[in-house]
Design a protein around this nucleic acid. Structure first.
Length: 480
RNA sequence: UCCUACUUAGCUCAGUUGGUUAGAGCAUCUGACUGUUAAUCAGAGGGUCGCUGGUUCAAGUCCAGCAGUGGGAGCCA
């Protein structure tokens, strides 16, 4: 069997030595014509493969370049040098794939994240991106584990949707009609989508929530975890055109249950990564620390990455209402000294990023759950509170990231829902499938959406969302 | 989409008030050395200064437009 090999992670973690084994991986560096730092992606740490002088002929030696793929067989021994506990004393080395050193763009040195973004197909071979994507995997696994352990059903909601009224953002159109102007037309010259593949106008989903609610009305506890698409022309460090979202929806939950679920969930998956990706997190923490040293004193963060994660896991999130938040902001010295670009004056407008950052990073210094927003600035499906002014919404704001969760208790009362839909000009006739949940056995329920990449950002300490998804999609960019 | 900064070698960056042949470190190549840790030492090659136009005797440097990238804002997860 060709693939008879041991993963480097196992060899480095094992406490045995003096046994024969085979490894395969990619060369990170080749020092002194003898020492190969080999990485197979199973861990951030390299295995030192020692090719004693005379083992390799000159021609083979020249082919051991940064990026080349090799197979090495030999004995695992205690290292004679410092810097590693064990090493592989090679008895045979085979080149599986050459890598032209003049053309391979990765060097054994620090590269800028901007440069690596241009070679996203190769950046996974760096320590930083290796760590990021192993952590991303752990977090994804922990998402399923968390919900599975609690008896939730994973629902695969559609990616192509015929519903035009999700209202969560600009949509990408899905069509097989020709784009050269020859598409079939209606009498009024609009495109005749009855002739299209699905017989109607379709888009990529911007949220699985509505379908999630349908499923919660039969399984009680469900969650979705899938790709989501927004065609907004957003150019920021925290938006993608294609991102992954987790949307639990739970029958019989009210807003408080919803908050408890979200807080437990976030803490659980962060803890999971801390328990299972200690090496990768330590590497990223160190990377971040070095980056912080470049900053002026007053811009440096108070906690290291690991301490920050531990703090989030060990402490309760701060919970307060929108109205209370407005009071805190209005009374803050920051506001009185007019340091906000948008000064807090009245009740009813949405908070700006600077306000959210002030609450999370300056005032409370921990994740914050804001609840009970004015109904005017929130979606039609959120449950109206008895005060007639607010809805049972909740947003979770995380330090450095901003909004990481948006959710609410849903409006289960048909008449109230219809009234809001009318006020907000939602086309009722297209939403009958959704309204049926309220017509047939409606019940109180609640749910939220968590942007997976924003969570990965938070856990890895990275600052640009384009660096925590393997192949980011954003305006003017769909390479690879 | 708006504001703002940036764009010079494969990478990271210098480049003075506009002035002769545009520099450095790393990487690459050649050689030396051989228990190295982003190895070290010596030498060599490598540039349409983002693109287009303008001002000028002369533009990497000044001006305009366009493009790309970073940061911030909006929209949101």
């Amino acid at each position: 069997m060709f693939n008879k090999r041991t993963k480097i992670k196992r060899l480095l973690e094992g406490d045995k030595a003096n046994f024969e084994t085979t490894v395969m991986g990619w060369v990170r560096t080749f020092r002194n014509n003898q020492f190969i730092a080999l990485n197979d992606g199973s861990t951030n740490n390299n295995l030192q493969v020692v090719a004693n002088l005379g083992l390799l002929d000159d021609a083979t030696m020249k082919r051991i370049t940064t990026g080349a793929c090799i197979k090495a067989t030999g004995e695992i021994i205690e290292s004679q040098g410092k810097g590693q506990r064990v090493e592989l004393k090679a008895s045979a080395i085979e080149i599986l794939g050459d890598s032209d050193a003049e053309k391979f763009p990765l060097q054994p040195k620090k590269h800028s994240l901007e440069f690596l973004r241009e070679i996203a197909h190769l950046r996974m071979r760096t320590n930083t991106f290796g760590a990021i994507f192993r952590i991303r995997h752990s977090l994804a696994f922990a998402v399923h584990k968390f919900y599975n352990d609690r008896g939730f059903v994973c629902m695969h909601t559609p990616i192509i949707t015929g519903s035009d009224a999700e209202g969560a953002g600009e949509m990408f159109k899905v069509t097989t009609l020709p784009l050269d102007g020859t598409a079939p037309r209606n009498d009024d010259d609009s495109i005749n989508y009855k002739e299209d593949f699905f017989g109607k106008s379709t888009n990529l989903t911007v949220s699985g929530q509505l379908e999630g609610e349908l499923a919660a009305m039969s399984f009680s506890d469900i969650y979705t975890f899938g790709p989501t698409f927004r065609a907004e022309n957003s150019n920021t460090t925290r938006h993608l055109a294609e991102f992954w979202m987790i949307e639990p929806e739970v029958a019989f939950n009210d807003l408080e249950d919803n908050m408890n679920l979200a807080e437990d969930f976030i803490k659980y998956i962060i803890k999971y990564a801390m328990d299972n990706n200690a090496d990768d997190l330590a590497f990223l923490a160190q990377r971040l620390e070095e980056e912080e040293k470049q900053k002026p004193q007053n811009e440096r963060s108070e906690m290291g990455l690991i301490d920050k994660l531990k703090f989030v896991v060990d402490n309760d999130f701060e919970r307060l209402t929108y109205t209370e938040a407005i009071e805190i902001l209005r009374e803050s010295n920051h506001n009185k000294k007019k340091k906000f670009q948008y000064l807090i004056e009245g009740w009813g407008t949405d908070l700006q990023s600077e306000h959210e950052r002030y609450l999370v990073e300056k005032h409370f210094k921990k994740p914050v759950i804001l609840t009970d927003y004015p109904k005017e600035i929130k979606s039609f499906y959120m449950r109206q509170n008895d005060d007639g002014k607010t809805v049972a919404a909740m947003d979770i704001l995380a330090p450095g990231i901003g909004e990481i969760v948006g959710g609410s208790q849903r409006e289960e009362r048909l008449d109230k829902l219809l009234q809001r839909m009318e006020e907000m000009h939602i086309p009722v006739e297209e939403m009958n499938f959704y309204l049926d949940t309220r017509r047939f056995g409606s019940c109180p329920h609640a749910g939220f959406g968590l942007g997976f990449e924003r969570l990965v950002l938070f856990v890895t300490g990275m600052t640009n969302i384009r660096d925590v998804i393997p192949f980011p999609r954003y305006p003017k960019s769909a390479a690879f």
